[in-house]
């Protein structure tokens, strides 16, 4: 079995109003060194296969087709073998 830990973030060129609102909250709390904050998604996916190449190929495909929207988002992931 493999576990994929996937981060999906808005592309850097795209404004993240949610991140900005959270950042302003932290600044209001007195954390005045906060410079930038962006909110994304963290997905943990387990795959029932022993084939690393297949797991890697399918995670990438799932990210491209559903888990992220390539018009506005980018993603990265790491893939680890885990005990079933």
């Amino acid at each position: 079995m493999f576990e994929a830990r996937i981060h999906v973030m808005l592309k850097k060129v795209i404004l993240d109003p949610q991140g900005k609102a959270v950042k302003n909250g932290l600044l209001a709390m007195g954390y005045d060194c906060v410079d930038d904050l962006r909110v994304g998604k963290y997905l943990v996916l387990t795959l029932n296969t022993a084939d690393r190449a297949k797991a890697d190929r399918e995670v990438r495909e799932m990210c491209d087709r559903l888990l992220s929207n390539p018009v506005i988002e980018e993603y990265n992931y790491d893939l680890q073998e885990v005990a079933p």
């Binding site: 808005l10 795209i14 404004l15 109003p17 949610q18 609102a21 929207n69 018009v71 506005i72």
Partner: peptide, 10 residues
């Protein structure tokens, strides 16, 4: 073409 994002005002 394109996509929609969260409203700027949230």
């Amino acid at each position: 073409p394109g996509a929609v994002l969260r409203n700027e005002s949230l």
